[in-house]
Nucleic acid binder design. Structure first.
Lengths: 171, 171
DNA sequence: TAGACCATGTAACCCGTTACATGATTAG
DNA sequence: CTAATCATGTAACGGGTTACATGGTCTA
């Protein structure tokens, strides 16, 4: 699972600009793929050089020009190969948990509480954000399997929050 | 949160060999940091070159020699700086969810079921593995904050499993 | 008038992965 | 006799991040 698989998958649905891809990553894939703007353009460039996607420049009035990318048959081939390949295991990086792990006798009680409160706030914001977005997404048409990924995300944030609030109340 | 922070944090507790560091990553940090053997040695090498850690070679009989690494005061400084720095947001990469997201009209029903069943199996194994390990860890001495990270992990796997089993039963 | 949104890209760098390379002891 | 455990490293590569670079429109 590399950035190119994600981008190819998005373009496999419909042609998009780099900006739109960023939007999808931020709003629909947040809790299972963290791709940044800085990764999108270099990847699009490579994919284009390899002939996996095609660029079409659209001149706009009053707005910057946009480059719309379309997947080619060779790109579709690569995406299909990816979809049939072995699923790679999930990978999580939680700086929050790492600090708790190392925190004993390094962080003061106040610092620990602050750490947990901050994490609760972050998770709460993320939960709100995917919930807000879900409505717009549903209007534009959400597929059955995509709806499962959304519920997965909501369930994930909710259970993490419940746990964090529980331990918070115990100290 | 980079590999070096993790290694520095482990060595800040007590001197270790690369092999022992790997063991800790695999057994205690699995669900919030995915570091591989291939990352440990290069990082140890860099840290040593920078004077953040010191190597001491211990000649063993009947076993390969081992290199025990100890943190230096400059290494401690870097680790403390890390612990006081801003917490970076969690990042998750789930190939499983990505495939569900793209799966509509590409994967057959059978393939979707297989995907979910495989994920259930993986999560089940990870849960069993951290539970098994927790007993040994507790015997060797587990700190209060570390116990929170362990519970977090168990809670995470259990709620993911519950969700997956629920959607599995609905199709 | 400040901030958000639209919109794109490159060069240099860094971190980590992969592939390559070795080998003895111990438990089942 | 086979697999697991102990034990370490390097060279080359790749993917992604960071810093740098630009600028108009629209909304509060």
């Amino acid at each position: 699972m590399r950035g190119r698989d994600v981008i190819l998958g998005i373009l496999n649905r419909s042609p998009r600009t780099g900006y739109e891809i960023n939007d999808i990553l931020k709003n629909q894939l947040t809790y299972f793929y963290d791709g940044t703007m800085g990764m999108i353009y270099p990847t699009l460039r490579k994919l284009e050089a390899e002939g996996k996607i095609k660029k079409e420049t659209i001149i706009q009035d009053g707005k910057p020009n946009k480059n719309v990318y379309t997947i080619t048959s060779s790109g579709k081939q690569e995406f299909n190969d990816y979809m049939q390949s072995k699923v790679s295991p999930e990978s999580i990086k939680s700086d929050f948990l790492l600090r708790l792990y190392f925190g004993e006798s390094i962080l003061s009680d106040d610092q620990v509480i602050k750490l947990i409160d901050q994490e609760i706030t972050r998770k709460q914001q993320q939960l709100n954000s995917i919930k807000d977005n879900a409505d717009r997404w549903k209007e534009k048409g959400m597929q059955r399997l995509q709806n499962i990924t959304l519920s997965y995300g909501i369930n994930y944030y909710q259970s993490a929050l419940k746990f964090l609030q529980h331990i918070r109340s115990q100290l």
